[in-house]
């Protein structure tokens, strides 16, 4: 049971992110929702790579024993870097939206409809 806690946390984070995206009206909070989903997925990836009592996979100076598989960590790093770019772009857009619309309420930021 105790080993399932990370997976439960993943589900909770993703659902919280979706909740924020759907029910929160502030654009900044929606951006936070996206970051929550992203953290959930990253946590999932990193949990997949966990091996009990394993060591860092440095082949040249290995003390012996089980090595953790490095791919999930590499994937997570890439995902985090991409996430930073996405969040930065989103926040800059939110800034521009505030400049044009004078509000951050998602219900009022809808000149484009129908």
């Amino acid at each position: 049971m105790i080993f399932n806690i990370p997976y439960i946390a993943v589900a909770v984070l993703i659902l919280l992110g979706l909740y924020a995206l759907i029910f929160k009206r502030n654009l900044i909070k929606m951006v936070i929702g996206i970051t929550l989903i992203e953290s959930g997925v990253n946590l999932f990836l990193i949990t997949l790579g966990y091996r009990k009592e394993s060591i860092a996979p440095i082949y040249t100076s290995s003390p012996g024993g089980v090595m953790a598989f490095p791919v999930p960590q590499a994937l997570t790093l890439t995902s985090i870097v991409i996430g930073v770019a996405v969040i930065a772009l989103m926040l800059s857009l939110v800034m521009h939206i505030y400049r044009h619309y004078g509000t951050l309420d998602v219900r009022k930021v809808r000149r484009l409809k129908e």
Partner: peptide, 18 residues
């Protein structure tokens, strides 16, 4: 009905996905 469906609200876009 169609006009009501296309609200232009970003949250609704996510809701449709879900």
């Amino acid at each position: 009905l169609l006009r009501k469906m296309h609200t232009g609200n970003t949250s609704d876009y996510v809701l449709w996905f879900v």
